[in-house]
Design a protein around this nucleic acid. Structure first.
Length: 426
RNA sequence: GGAGAGGUGGCUGAGUGGUCGAAAGCGAACGACUCGAAAUCGUUUGAUAGCUUCAACUAUCCGUGGGUUCGAAUCCCACCCUCUCCGCCA
């Protein structure tokens, strides 16, 4: 959420940030609402102050022995009632302005970091570095072709159980999925992350707090009879883990790693990535999340990114790091690095992790603070990064490990978890 | 789902209509004592917004939202959450 003070005092700065994202929004009406709200509040404060002193006066007089039914006191009562009525009117007006204002402010995305790459869309993103040799050969299969041969999963039966864009893993694939989750959790715990297994259902306040609501309601599955949604990413429950708290700065950064299933409606992506593990309504993910001191969240982003990278390195999967331009940033992010893994079967790099610094955007929505050096409460910064998306990792392992005999060589790091160095045709 | 108890400041906990933003204790900060520390003594110590460099001041906040009243932490209504017992259940 954007700071209302900034909106009141310097809307041009916000407009500039939004423009960088490709949004041309005139904030003057919003600013007007903001200012009107402050004026009303001031007016109300004065009235309330008068009302308070009348209340005190009545109390004093009654204590002094003056009859509650005396003319003096009933005059004060009348005055008190008048004030109450006026305050009521103002409050009504404030409420209506406030709900309108809030709805709009909650729909404004975060402002990009000042020195970000300016650009319109993913074409303007910038490759930062590469790791590993992307290999290529003739007759390489895409991961779903491999899966068919090895009998790894079944999409038709999944549609029978649920609908399209769900997958049911069998045998070696089911075990590989489980192995990947454990491997990634262990790796991050070794690096100092606290392991968390959060609820898979989250309430509306949590989704608002991390930025998925109110704007992206159509992206999440909602439970009909409860104020609960299926979590689209562990980022949501992890943000709300400390909602409303003031975290002592000695504890920062707080680093969490969480496995969770993720559920997304993928509205508007009909026909895209319809085969394989790339785009599903339900997928598993290991998520990294930091609550950072605001003064060093920039370095924190580098660290969380390199923690995510280390998974790919351990798995011997070639990848590249992309810095997103302003036009391609997600709603809550100030700055984002995407990790793209090499898929030789598809002959392309595909996103497998997204690491973002959200600055104080989520912290303001969720009211998560710490103390600065002057012991003042200040909003802290939050960061998140996939470490990694499990399904896409499996796809990458299948495509990168494929052998001419139809088997799949697994990365060494996985052997202790999977119990074998190969996937074999059954 | 049914019955009961309860939700107060960083924590414990008092407060059932009128200087209550809230006693007391703990914790924390500062000062004194000390070579230093502990103990002791003294002072200070909630949040947000507005005004303001600071201070002072004003408003709001005692689970949430309504209501009664000149005045609500305190009374009334609804909801949420926690705990205990019962039912159900992996």
């Amino acid at each position: 959420m954007i700071d209302q003070r900034l909106l009141r005092n310097n809307p041009a700065l916000i407009e500039e940030g939004l423009k960088a994202r490709g949004m041309d929004i005139d904030l003057a009406p919003l600013q007007k609402h903001c200012k009107a709200l402050k004026e009303l509040e001031e007016k109300r404060n004065i009235l309330q102050s008068q009302g308070n002193s009348i209340g005190k006066e009545v109390g004093k007089k009654i204590k002094q022995g003056i009859s509650p039914n005396s003319e003096e006191i009933s005059n004060l009562r009348i005055k008190g009632n008048q004030i109450k009525q006026e305050v009521g009117l103002i409050e009504e007006e404030e409420k209506s302005i406030n709900t309108r204002l809030n709805d709009q402010i909650l729909c404004l995305p975060n402002l990009p970091e000042k020195d970000s790459i300016q650009g319109k869309n993913e074409k303007d993103n910038k490759e930062i570095r590469r790791w590993g040799e992307p290999f290529s050969r003739k007759n390489l299969k895409e991961h779903w072709e491999i899966a068919n041969k090895l009998n790894l999963w079944d999409s038709e039966r999944s549609a029978l159980i649920a609908k399209s864009r769900f997958v049911t893993l069998f045998n070696q694939a089911a075990k590989l999925e489980r192995s990947l989750i454990s491997f990634m959790l262990d790796l991050h715990v070794k690096k100092g992350y606290q392991e968390v297994l959060p609820p898979a259902l989250v309430n509306t306040a949590s989704l608002k707090g991390s930025g998925q609501l109110p704007k992206f309601a159509e992206e999440s599955f909602r439970c009909a009879d409860d104020d609960l949604w299926l979590t689209p990413t562990a980022e949501v429950p992890l943000t709300s883990l400390h909602r409303g708290e003031i975290i002592p700065k000695e504890l920062l950064p707080l680093k969490y790693v969480a496995y969770s299933p993720c559920f997304r409606r993928e509205a508007g992506s009909y026909g895209r990535d319809t085969r394989g593990l790339i785009r599903l309504h339900q997928f598993n993910k290991v998520e990294l999340y930091w609550f950072s001191n605001p003064i060093n969240s920039r370095e924190a982003l580098d660290q969380i990114t390199s923690d995510a990278e280390s998974v790919l390195q351990q798995l011997e999967l070639p990848y590249r790091v992309i810095e997103l331009c302003t036009g391609d940033l997600g709603f809550s992010a100030k700055k984002t690095y995407d990790l793209e893994v090499w898929l030789p079967g598809a002959n392309a790099y595909r996103e497998i992790s997204s690491c973002s610094n959200c600055g104080d955007f989520q912290a303001r929505r969720s009211s998560i603070r710490t103390k600065d050096n002057n012991k003042k409460n200040v909003l802290l910064h939050t960061l998140n990064g996939s470490g990694l998306a499990i399904g896409r990792t499996m796809a990458a392992i299948l495509e990168n490990g494929q052998q001419s005999d139809g088997s799949i060589n697994l990365p060494k790091a996985l052997i202790p978890y999977f119990g074998s160095s190969k996937l074999k045709p059954e």
